[in-house]
Nucleic acid binder design. Sequence first.
DNA 1: CCATCGGTAGGGCAAATGCCCAATCGCCAA
DNA 2: TTGGCGATTGGGCATTTGCCCTACCGATGG
Lengths: 318, 318
Amino acid sequence: MTQNRFTPETTRLDDAARAGWLYYVAGNTQDEIARKLGVSRQSAQRLVAMAVSERLVKVRLDHPIGRCMDLGAALRDRFGLLVAEVAPSDPAAPDLLTGIAIAAAAHLERVLKSPDRRIVSLGTGRNLRAMVEQLPTMACPQHVVVSRLGNMMEDGSATPYNATIRLAERIGAPHYPYPLPVLARDAAELAAMQAQQAARNTIDLCARADLSLVGIGQMDMTAPLHVDGFLSVPEMEQLHRAGAVGEITSWVYDDRGQVIDCDFNRRVASAPLPRGTDRPVIAVALGQAKLPAIRAALIGGLINGLVTSEATAERLLD
Amino acid sequence: MTQNRFTPETTRLDDAARAGWLYYVAGNTQDEIARKLGVSRQSAQRLVAMAVSERLVKVRLDHPIGRCMDLGAALRDRFGLLVAEVAPSDPAAPDLLTGIAIAAAAHLERVLKSPDRRIVSLGTGRNLRAMVEQLPTMACPQHVVVSRLGNMMEDGSATPYNATIRLAERIGAPHYPYPLPVLARDAAELAAMQAQQAARNTIDLCARADLSLVGIGQMDMTAPLHVDGFLSVPEMEQLHRAGAVGEITSWVYDDRGQVIDCDFNRRVASAPLPRGTDRPVIAVALGQAKLPAIRAALIGGLINGLVTSEATAERLLD
DNA sequence: CCATCGGTAGGGCAAATGCCCAATCGCCAA
DNA sequence: TTGGCGATTGGGCATTTGCCCTACCGATGG
């Protein structure tokens, strides 16, 4: 802090933090902030805006909105869930992920506050990534973060939205990236991969995870698996014919929430989904497009927790 | 969703929460919220205000500065201070003075930016000296810098850490060194000294200072007064017995922040400490050793401003 | 039945805010 | 040293927000 006072962006962020504090915590006007910091009003405005855009200020709504609580209770009841959090929807932008990101982050934060060691396993996807961005920086060296699936494509490049690394950085915990690619070429190669010690370790950690957070992928043309290049159009059509409606950490399942017995799933290198566990396996998902996938995952018991939006919760309960 | 008003106050808080969510999380304007909730713009404004006043929205600042600002606010509140700046501590070197030097320099700089004449009075000590070193060179011929105490020892030699001269050089302002030694031989000599016109002028300037910056000295074996040779071991033991815990510009005070009525203080030639003024009298001090001295000065109202470190601020608030 | 009263809604306006744009500053390469 | 270029600054202005004030609504009591 003191030694790199000459790096402009650090000082600037500091000032942004100060401005953000004066604005949001102390309730100063931007004019007052400008005077106190010795800058112009416009600069103060920029600093406040920067504090927001750099995610230094985190706003949390500490009131269970009755309707969302009701929906959450209904979801827990209907689908036998351990956890169901419902965040308010903006009617005009019902698929905004900030809301569920904050709700999921609040839940994760509660687990991370434990002084005892917790194993947290994560999937991928922008919902999880957004969740991690909403998490405050904490010092949690006692916990372990592990990825449930690879982020390497076949050519060795990495997919974006890696939540695991980001979370581990943010909370200062040791982390285990998944040491295999997303897909093997065939079942034989997969078996060989999974025989490696590192893979066995990681898969074992995933099986023992105290909390698992995953995304849910739909199986239409906007499917994450397709967009990220893991699934060609012919392959997807084939999966459709086999009844695929969604996927969790690449495991493709049908409308009853059964993982489909097919060539694709035999190539999936991700950690197996825990079944019938009493430890939370929570999906963070929302949106019309994912509705059938979420519903199927709930019916089939692929997950025992859900963080979603008000609008999605309503449709799930229809 | 808003029309079942079975319990008005619950529904109202719900709406407030929803409005707060739409405003702070979804980033809607109050007009949009009004349309979405089917109320007038003014009502939406009231709902958002209620969400804030009912503490439904919680803002957190995810930056080390945030904690410092909180501590500063707590110090101002607890001790009724005009100014309280808290600089982040490096846990490995909590007593490093670079941090508070920068913070104090930033505060001083804001005052110096004024186009109107300001009288700045300074104490001595390495904290103030470090502060001046952190100040950028500015051209401030409109201001006046005056020392609150002498820097001559009885033999006429000068003490180190003279902040006044250095500050005046750096900002190109006229300055008034203190025209008396630190200590007179006795009360009679002191009275004679203070009768001189130059002394009267300087003391008057100190009394009218728009900003005063002082250090705080502890009263153990590492006491600045002792190290610099103004206080022999027997004298210090005597002061200890009289309850001395600290000194500001050589005025020795007890644990309630009362300047002690004793021989030593009757020889102190420094300008009197301003009492109950609305102009800032700010101490720049940190460290475990100075803790009792700082606390007593705050309690007794010897100062109305403090620049300190995070670690020291925490201990002061215990 | 009406008068009163506490509280809420909405008009209006001043203050605060967000943002575009031209001017300036600082930096780097020539 | 100079010229160019990107970043930053502050002016100006439209929009948004906070708040005062009056009107209205429903409840309560006479």
